[in-house]
């Protein structure tokens, strides 16, 4: 996974899943960006881990339903909106982008904490949405839409 191009990871996941028992959990260590997770779930992976939601949270990058936000940017200096209007997490229900930007610029410890909280919430919600769509038989459509929408990997 680490250091390989995403297409090769997908190919390897397929190779491995053909030979390992279907009744055992499949764990893709270190994966990944939201688009990588959706892709791997469609190939039969059950478990994921990654430092991205917390590491990026501490440096001010938020995963949102409309793409990534680098909160330190001057465009957010007076922005009253939450990180993600569609998000119901504590950070998004209570704080503006302008406040979060201020916390980062002032070097306050709460800054990384609030954005990490949002990012873990985003990943946890993504997994719960994935499970709901598999259960209701709509995962293929959800996956296609998500992969078109998510573009977190590219700088």
């Amino acid at each position: 996974m680490i250091g390989e191009p995403p297409s090769l990871t997908a190919e390897m996941v397929d190779e491995v899943n053909e030979v390992i028992p279907p009744n055992k959990p499949r764990y893709l260590m270190g994966c990944g960006y939201p688009e990588d997770i959706v892709e791997a779930v469609g190939r039969g992976v059950d478990l994921f881990d990654c430092v991205l939601p917390t590491r990026n949270g501490r440096t001010g990058m938020a995963f949102t339903s409309h793409g990534k936000i680098i909160i330190k940017g001057s465009r957010y200096a007076a922005d009253k909106a939450p990180l993600d209007k569609k998000c119901a997490c504590y950070t998004c229900r209570n704080f503006s982008r302008a406040y979060l930007r201020h916390l980062f610029n002032a070097g306050e410890a709460l800054a990384g904490r609030l954005v990490s909280y949002h990012n873990i919430y985003f990943y946890t919600k993504l997994m719960s949405d994935i499970r709901k769509h598999i259960s209701s038989g709509t995962f293929a459509t959800f996956s296609k839409k998500s992969k078109q929408k998510f573009d977190f990997r590219n700088p």
Binding site: P25, D46, L47, T124, M127, R131, I134, G137, A140
Partner: peptide
């Protein structure tokens, strides 16, 4: 899932029943 290889599962551990697919914060 019928169209893809996705699946839902229950991973029953000593402390918690984990629903899969799932993501582990580090």
């Amino acid at each position: 899932d019928r169209k893809t290889n996705a699946r839902c599962g229950r991973l029953k551990t000593k402390h918690f029943v984990v629903q899969t697919p799932n993501f582990m914060p580090v």
